[in-house]
Design a protein around this nucleic acid. Sequence first.
DNA 1: GCTCCATTGAC
DNA 2: TCAATGGAG
Length: 467
Amino acid sequence: MNTAILWFRRDLRLADNPALHLALREAERLIPVFIWSPEEEGEWAPGGASRWWLHHSLADLAGELAKRGCPLVIRRGDSLAELRRLARETGAGGVFWNRLYEPAAIARDTRIKEALREDGLEAQSANSALLIEPWQIRTGGGDPYRVFTPYWKAAQALLPAGRLEPVPAALVPAAEPPQSLPLEALELLPRIAWAAAFPGRWQPGAGGARQRLERFAEDVVLDYSARRDQPAQDATSGLSPHLHFGDIGPRQVLMRMQRALAEDRGSGRIATTDHFLREIGWREFAHHLLFHFPRTPTEPLYDKFAAFPWRKPKDYAADLAAWQRGRTGVPIVDAGMRELWTTGIMHNRVRMIVASFLTKNLLIPWQEGAKWFWDTLVDADLANNTLGWQWTAGCGADAAPYFRVFNPVLQSQKFDPQGEYLRRWLPELAALPTDRLHMPGAQRPAIVDLAETRQRALDAYARIKGA
DNA sequence: GCTCCATTGAC
DNA sequence: TCAATGGAG
């Protein structure tokens, strides 16, 4: 084959890109293409924050490709139609891509693979996004895992080893350059100034991802176990949006961590690196679950929770709005929701706190929280978002037992003892003494009584228990 | 079928 | 202490 199409989706990098190497094995000339087709992702088209990231990550990828003499082609519309058109225009003999695991994407890609093969084209997919593909791991009984610890234990034996595919220094483009839209034509950037603070916080793209991984592996991971749960600290990797868009892949992360370990065995690095890789394991587990239980983005994994007595939309609309805007009167909740709105991210510890508050204290369905996160997080990822929300709501895999209701005041005191995080995101409270800072009503009257609503949640759970 | 372990907590 | 549950053995 003379020419191959490399179809980029959420693998926006040249390093450790197996589809790229599949294509280069088959063909001399390469046509890298990105097709904007959000309607093909059903209910889960990228949200506003994700689109901001995608724009900049695509710009970075286009730059890297141009440097190697092989410009990125940008199209919009029906993916299959555009791939066929591109193959016709260029005489390409095949299409290569890296797999996605969302139900809508799997259905689309399966259909496209069949259609391209019927056209007489080669069509092949590869794995760039996961250490272990969802179908590689089963319990002794042959079922998918639903509990993390045994899943991750089984995963150890299947972790990839060996070298990663190198980045080609140069690529050969199509004989005739195909038509391409300018990136701006996709209109991915928000029209309002909402994302104004994002560029100071993030550098989307493969270069930014590599810098983050280096900094983390050299320095931050040393204290990861001790500091990861404190939202005021800059003690996490910050890799989640990069991993979502494939600016970097989990194999690159794993190999870098293994190198860090090899460089200084005997230090405290072993335990803390394992702890971090365990979090990468949660990402793998989330994809395992989404693949095997594709209805979970909207439905509880365990059927009996379908009968859970959530409040009704007309009753909770005002409380939901207060939660979204960071006006609940519970400081740690409001701080987290403001961090999310301003930066497109929220510390994982705080995600659990605000999610517990929404589902248990406000008794609002977890799906509402999942939708809000979907639109506001730069790292919005269907697998991770679904697992996180169902975990907190108590209806999903490896869930916290429902009777474990987070107390946001205790959580705040424990994980932000100096009130540093609270003062950062609620500057109007900066002058308060720390002990008062954590308390509901410090800034505005709390919309609910914590003790009362905790009991209401426990009662609601008791009603469906054993159903 | 049984025991044991683990499970980002609160009272 | 409370308490539910999956998974391993």
